[in-house]
């Protein structure tokens, strides 16, 4: 889909859908939202729906950075301590690399 060819109201509704969808533990929707609507929100000359799009994109970015922070912390901790956790570590793992503690 090309955003250029979409009327502004539909852009807003699309951006809103992505923003709300992100709350269903889908941070990737927020990522898409931020990347996709960044130009519309901050670069394009102003239009009526732009303020709302701006808000959604900002909030999506905020939510996204929260997720990134949480996931990075967790992955670091998990990779670092998995072998020390022993059984818990193994149960938490989907695939266990062969021949490594």
């Amino acid at each position: 889909m090309n955003l250029e060819r979409l009327p502004n109201e539909e852009k807003l509704s699309l951006c809103r859908k992505y923003y709300l969808g992100g709350f269903a533990l889908l941070p990737f929707l927020w990522l898409v939202n931020v990347v996709w609507f960044f130009k519309e929100a901050f670069v394009k000359p102003p239009f009526t729906e732009q303020t709302l799009i701006k808000t959604y994109v900002k909030r999506s970015a905020l939510g996204l950075s929260f997720w990134v922070a949480v996931l990075t912390t967790w992955i670091t901790i998990y990779q670092h301590y998995r072998s020390q956790w022993g059984e818990v570590g193994d149960r938490l793992s989907f695939t266990i690399p062969l021949g490594t503690p």
Binding site: S83, G86, E87, D90, F94, T95, L98, G99, T100, P101
Partner: peptide, 20 residues
């Protein structure tokens, strides 16, 4: 290259994990 590591408890546990 050896698949098992650490000790018997670890490798027997990994044998039994069928989640993967």
């Amino acid at each position: 290259h050896m698949s098992a590591v650490t000790n018997t408890a670890t490798c027997m546990r990994r044998n039994s994990i069928s989640f993967s």
